[in-house]
Design a protein around this nucleic acid. Structure first.
Length: 268
DNA sequence: CAACCTGTTCGCCA
DNA sequence: ATGGCGAACAGGTT
């Protein structure tokens, strides 16, 4: 589920807890999502701390608490944030529960590919501050986009788009959407892209991120009807432009859908 | 029952 | 050094 806009959607589910103290913490410390995290420190230091603010960067979430506590969450494939009434009883997949007055903030993840990080420091942790500028920010210029594509010159362009260091927040459906809207075959090596194609990827990336944030990210609303996302998972999906049956293959290790007519294979 | 999955990381290999 | 490939992670869904 979670790419950039879905992550933003989930972030807001803990907004109900802003400005409130954490009265107690319950967690499943042995679960894989806590790998590398000091869960004793997390419980000890978050108890009594106040939730000050939160932010999403790419697929990463950060919840900032008083006392210099930084709670980082990655949703993996099946992670979810939700707020529950105070009589909430955690189920098997509710791995982290922050109890506050009248509510419980919950992180659930059935498949356990997500990750919880915890740091106590004056400054944000390095893994967080190292995340590049948002794809919707003015710093993500056409030049920056081009340089990032050129960092993986021989990889299929889809692999570059999926690289979180280069395009933070882009996941499998967004990469397919960008390439379909830009009319570029997903297996095209980045180095083989024309200047016009590079620019098109930049434009579509920004546009798709913005629109996804305004729809999915706002209230799980539907993206525009003519987007690929609505048909890409159907085994018999057709191109929204003219009904040509979509092709499917594994590219860059991921199931990929594209239109053979709009996105002709790069020659060579 | 088998296949498949909107993510990340690792080892192996060309 | 680069990058394709498959596996692993763990559980739900089709």
């Amino acid at each position: 589920m979670p790419e950039l806009a879905e992550v933003e959607y989930h972030r807001k589910h803990w907004d109900q807890g802003l400005g409130r103290k954490v009265l107690g913490v319950e967690l499943h410390a042995t679960k894989r999502i806590f790998r590398g995290a000091d869960t004793d420190a997390l419980v000890g230091e978050l108890t009594g701390a106040k939730l000050l603010r939160s932010e999403a960067r790419g697929k990463q979430l950060m919840f900032v608490f008083s006392g210099g506590s930084w709670l980082g969450i990655h949703l993996g494939m099946t992670g979810k944030m939700h707020a529950e009434p105070s009589d909430f009883t955690p189920g098997k997949h509710d791995h982290l529960v922050l109890r506050q007055k009248d509510i419980a903030l919950v992180f659930s993840d059935s498949r356990l590919f997500g990750r919880v990080r915890y740091d106590q420091a004056k400054q944000p942790p390095k893994w967080w501050s190292d995340i590049g500028p948002a794809l919707v920010s003015p710093e993500f210029t056409a030049k920056v986009c081009r340089e990032r594509l050129e960092r993986r010159p021989r990889a299929p362009v889809k692999a570059a788009l999926l690289d979180q260091k280069l395009f933070p927040g882009v996941g499998n459906w967004m990469a397919d959407e960008i390439l379909w809207q830009a009319r570029i075959h997903p297996a095209t090596p980045s180095a083989a892209l024309s200047a016009a194609q590079q620019k098109s990827i930049w434009q579509k990336t920004r546009e798709i991120c913005r629109t996804a944030l305004r729809t999915i990210g706002r209230d799980w609303g539907d993206p525009p009807d003519d987007w690929l996302i609505h048909v890409r998972w159907r085994k018999k999906g057709d191109c929204p432009r003219h009904g040509t049956p979509l092709k499917h293959a594994t590219i860059a290790g991921r199931t990929t859908a594209w239109c053979p007519r709009c996105q002709p294979r790069a020659k060579g």
